[in-house]
Write a protein that binds this DNA or RNA. Structure first.
Length: 289
DNA sequence: CTTACGGCCTGGGTGC
DNA sequence: TGCACCCAGGCCGTAA
């Protein structure tokens, strides 16, 4: 499940090798997850990759034109749940579920592999950085770049559950299920607490916890739960440092209580029932029972 | 307007 | 061996 730290790890790996290289050709397999396959085949060859960036969970490849067409383009890739981007030699064995091949002018190749095909690949015309929109609208703050004031403003006054807010890409771009649960555990906040009901102290703790968890996950090159590998095919190591995610029934590293798993905001949520106190039930919610 | 929720996409893992 | 079922994340339609 590539979230911010995994995408960042891949971006750093690609940024080290791709800039300055030219895309010579594009070959596609199954294309039902690609918005406009022929646009990739027609518009990418000949372009030079000037930089590789992360925008939320998107990878952005900025492309220069070397010929008369001076229009700047960007290639936008979202890895969905099981997407992988790998660089290799063209003669390297082809793993099952590889759906896109980008031939580069140094004789190497970048491949997109995606078992579930929940990812997406598309071309973005001009004005890439701020022009990256999710289908729902503009993306929110970068969790590592946002100031504490900006973060607080994004959560304050919202009556949704904090878990839903952290996962909402229009509030914060790049958070996913793993790092949301880990951040909430570090901040000792129950996932069903309402954003509006968090104290200033709790919001401060959450901001600090989120930044710490994300930076440490990047340092450990991401979490490999199922399919995630970096651009060289190497798994991450942060899954060994998870405190709650995927640890249902195991002991909370802080208080030894048993970690629980419940669905919150439509997602599996792992938390410690002792360290992360559930909010008091409202009169309305209690009446139902 | 905001929020909650169920369904959909796909295929690997599990358990019978 | 086969097969039904669950689950994952993002998005979308619908309802309150």
């Amino acid at each position: 499940m590539p979230e911010l730290p995994e995408v960042e790890t891949i971006v750093r790996g690609l940024q080290a090798v791709l800039p300055g290289k030219r895309i010579m050709g594009v070959r596609l397999g199954i294309t039902d997850f690609i918005e406009d396959p022929s646009a990739l085949e027609e518009q990418l060859p000949g372009r030079r990759i000037s930089s590789v960036r992360r925008y939320g969970k998107f990878l952005v490849f900025d492309l220069d034109s070397l010929s008369g067409d001076s229009r700047r383009l960007a290639l936008l890739i979202h890895l969905g749940m099981t997407g992988q981007l790998l660089t290799c030699k063209p003669e390297a064995p082809i793993a099952a579920h590889t759906h896109a091949y980008f031939a580069l002018d140094d004789g190497s190749e970048m491949r997109y592999r995606d078992i579930r095909r929940f990812g997406s690949i598309r071309i973005l015309a001009e004005g890439a950085p701020s022009g990256v929109l999710s289908p729902l609208g503009p993306l929110g703050l970068d969790p590592l770049e946002a100031t504490e004031e900006e973060f607080r403003a994004g959560i304050n006054g919202r009556h949704a559950r904090i878990k839903a807010l952290l996962l909402d890409q229009r509030v914060l771009r790049g958070m996913g299920n793993i790092y949301t649960d880990e951040s909430l555990w570090h901040a000792k906040i129950h996932p069903t607490r309402l954003g509006a009901k968090l104290s200033a102290r709790e919001l401060h703790g959450l901001y600090v916890a989120m930044r710490r968890v994300l930076s440490q996950a990047i340092r450990f090159r991401g979490s490999s739960i199922s399919d995630y590998v970096d651009s060289k095919g190497t798994p991450g190591k942060f899954q060994q440092r998870h405190c709650v995610y995927g640890r249902k029934g195991k002991k909370c590293p802080r208080c030894a209580a048993m970690i629980r798993r419940e669905t919150v905001a439509g997602r599996s949520s792992y938390f410690c029932p002792k360290c992360q106190r559930a909010p008091k039930k409202t009169r309305k919610a209690r009446r139902k029972h």
